[in-house]
Nucleic acid binder design. Structure first.
Lengths: 336, 336
DNA sequence: CTGAAAGCGCTTACAG
DNA sequence: CTGAAAGCGCTTACAG
């Protein structure tokens, strides 16, 4: 492995000079710079980031958690994060979580060993252990598309799912629907949507009909579909009069559609179905799913921006930001 | 930041002893070990991996490229890689490529700076620059689900798509189909499938009918669907007598189905459609897609295994491995 | 504009 | 079983 010393020797300069070249130091004689450049090229020298990091204060790197590599929204979020970080000269390290709380803990440990400058995380659950670890870690943290407990002081960046759900209820009731069911997703975000659904329904003097998805989370598209199909079966038994189903995610909505199809019920003629999240798949001709959309890319960017702000010496009061949602109207819903 | 020196002072031992504790050195008096353990815990000390890496030879870390974070197969591959690496005590760093050749080059650079022990990559194209960079890098490399040119000497792990395509042709002709079209994917793997298709067709004395997907690659599910829909339109104009369509990927097959649906043609009554890859989505009741499957998890594991073998001092002749494929028969195909 | 030297936080022979 | 010292590959004041 060739080191900075080899380069210095080859170029006939001191190690300090090579270091200056590597760090784009302005005070460098043009001729020396050319000599060093040549040496670096000819020796095919690549500086060691480990060595660099021991003698520096910051690694200029942040960690971003991959909640589940099948999570359909992650790519857009991550892209926003990456773009912003790149502009600011920061590197990004991904931590694959696979929906496991232990993996997150492992990644936080790793981040500490690496001396990362900050963390953008998307935990499935805010366990006491996680919260405690985060507090001890003393590393800037922002939650992306997740809602940390207010007491944690961790800022979050998310879409305003409460508002989104309320918009959807308003739209459905505007179409004349009175018997509207909500298929709940049991996550922090799902609970936000549930709140929005309930409040909006009650405000209209309607009874909020709610059915839960059988299993735990379900960020994976196919799990969501399976869960949605199962939930729809229950719903049909429990409330056959329902005319509209508002699912807490698009996969759940698609699963619900599968069950309706199986039972010989047509969408939207017999039942209107809508989801949330604006999964690309929902636009396919088989589904034409009405849904709630939000800016995935912008969310990622904003999370990165918040994080880097917290990186400064002073603790700027970190405030969460919720993005507005908007409805995407397609043919899976219609007036009763 | 607390350092090893702080821990040593706190525990009343030397820095070497703390280091021994951290590295699970066997020769450590039980009482000292307890003292150090306590100090580490009370000071909440986490060793710096950067510092550790400068004084060690290996980082025991390998890099794995994420071709496109939307790539539906990536998760399973990555999981296999992670599992194996974890068993062997190696860490994994992901590099997001976003289908950009430049990003791969950047990641290779990064890997060199990090002094990673090896790389598992999935490039879209084997450009001369990439091949050259890889050669200069002197780092063990294996290609996963991609086919490097034989001259590069880079081993690859992939499914035997040639064989898979041949199996599919055999199945379709067994059903009595004579006019079979193949929608080609313009990637190294797509070309393998094309070869298999052509050879198998010709062997049966049939004319291989081929239509290309309009755009470049298309690992993203939705791009594949769009491309498949477009290709199917062309195919219908070019060869209206076709009774079976073998698409080079499942998204392409689904796109083809969308076009057939739009034209009022039924699957499989009017046209049989099948794909390749065994995307989970293909199992949905709307598609019931016949396809070609292979072990995604095992592929990842094997790639990691090959790589670690190359890590040893001696250059073991690296040999590629191709996994067998098998057909998944569903209701999108039937006898003419 | 450049070099010598100290230091970053670890690990690793080498003694004892 | 433990410590003192040298070293890993860089960066960064400090001189000049």
């Amino acid at each position: 492995m060739t080191t900075i010393r080899d380069v210095a020797k080859y170029a006939g300069v001191s190690v300090s000079t090579v270091s200056r070249y590597l760090n784009h130091h302005p005070d460098l004689n043009e001729e020396t710079r050319a000599r060093v450049e040549r040496a670096v090229r000819e020796l095919d020298y690549v500086p060691s980031s480990a060595a660099r990091n021991v003698s520096r204060l910051s690694t200029r790197t942040v960690g971003l958690t991959i909640p589940d590599i099948q999570d359909s929204f992650f790519a857009d979020n991550a892209y926003g994060v990456e773009q912003y970080l790149r502009e600011k000269g920061y590197a990004l390290i991904y931590g694959s979580l696979d929906r496991s709380g232990q993996r997150l803990l492992d990644f936080i440990r790793y981040a500490r060993e690496m001396r990362l400058d900050g963390l953008i995380i998307t935990p499935e659950e805010w366990s006491a252990e996680l919260l405690d670890t985060l507090k001890r870690t003393k590393m800037p943290v922002v939650a992306l598309r997740r809602r940390p407990p207010a007491s944690s002081g961790i800022p979050c960046v998310d879409a305003d799912h409460y508002q989104g759900a309320a918009q959807m209820v308003e739209y459905l009731t505007g179409l004349g629907h009175r018997h509207i069911a909500h298929i709940v997703l049991n996550t922090d975000i799902g609970r936000e949507r549930l709140r929005g659904f309930k409040d909006a329904m009650e405000q209209q003097g309607l009874k909020p009909l709610v059915v839960s998805v059988p299993e735990i989370p379900a960020n994976r598209t196919m799990d969501g579909i399976r869960n949605g199909a199962e939930a729809m079966k229950r719903l049909l038994e429990k409330a056959p009069r329902v005319t509209a189903v508002f699912a807490s995610s698009d996969p759940i909505a698609i699963g619900a559609m599968a069950t309706l199809r199986e039972k010989g019920l047509r969408v939207p003629e017999d039942v209107s179905v809508c989801g949330s999240g604006d999964l690309e798949m929902g636009a396919l001709p088989w589904f034409r799913l009405t849904t709630i959309a939000f800016e995935r890319y912008a969310l990622g960017r904003k999370a990165a921006e918040l994080l880097l702000n917290m990186t400064g010496k002073e603790v700027c009061a970190p405030s969460s930001v919720l993005f507005e949602t908007h409805l995407v109207l397609r043919e899976s819903t219609r007036a009763v």
